[in-house]
Amino acid sequence: MTYSKIIGVLAIQGAYFKHQKAVEKLGYKTLLVRNKQELDSVNSLIIPGGESTAMIIILKKHGMWDELKSFCKSYPVFGTCAGTILLAKKSHGLECFGEDNTFSVMDIEVVRNSYGRQVDSFKTDLEASISGSVKTIPAIFIRAPQVIGFDEQKVKVLSYCEGSPVLLQQNNCLACTFHPELTDSLDIHDYFCKL
């Protein structure tokens, strides 16, 4: 029997189909994850962009919060935009949810909607150091969060946008404040799937 890896995509809300498509293009099996049973069947997980507040509310209400929190501590996870907000040790703008408002697996500090409202959303090209080389990657930022601090001992910055870290890695956790799933570039997904 051959072992084949299944990449999960958290499908509570947001751009989950786009991530699923990107990963399938790379030839991996995928599973949309909404409950514990589905979470138990995947080897790694993508947490998509969307509204972090909505995701937190639904996850807590349906008993998925603690399950995901422990999953993120043990398996590779990749958060984009709202996903990054959820992986961070500290995220500003989620105070209404009390202390336990993120999965707290990356030593980064994030501010929600940090670039402004939708009219300030933008696209650009970035240089990213992944898989041992520097690649140019198209990046789309939608009402994006910004990383305002990180533990330099533990976190590696793979890409910056105008001085601000936008793609970061800590062990097998990857966080990205923009949306690679909205472009044709598969480089970042490919990098994550090999973690």
Binding site: A11, I12, Q13, G14, A15, Y16, F17, K18, G49, G50, E51, A54, C81, A82, Q118, S121, F122, K123, I140, F141, I142, R143, H179, L182, T183
Partner: peptide, 13 residues
Amino acid sequence: ETKIGLAEMLKGG
């Protein structure tokens, strides 16, 4: 892309 991007983020909501 940023216009459609926001619509994408609202999916499933």
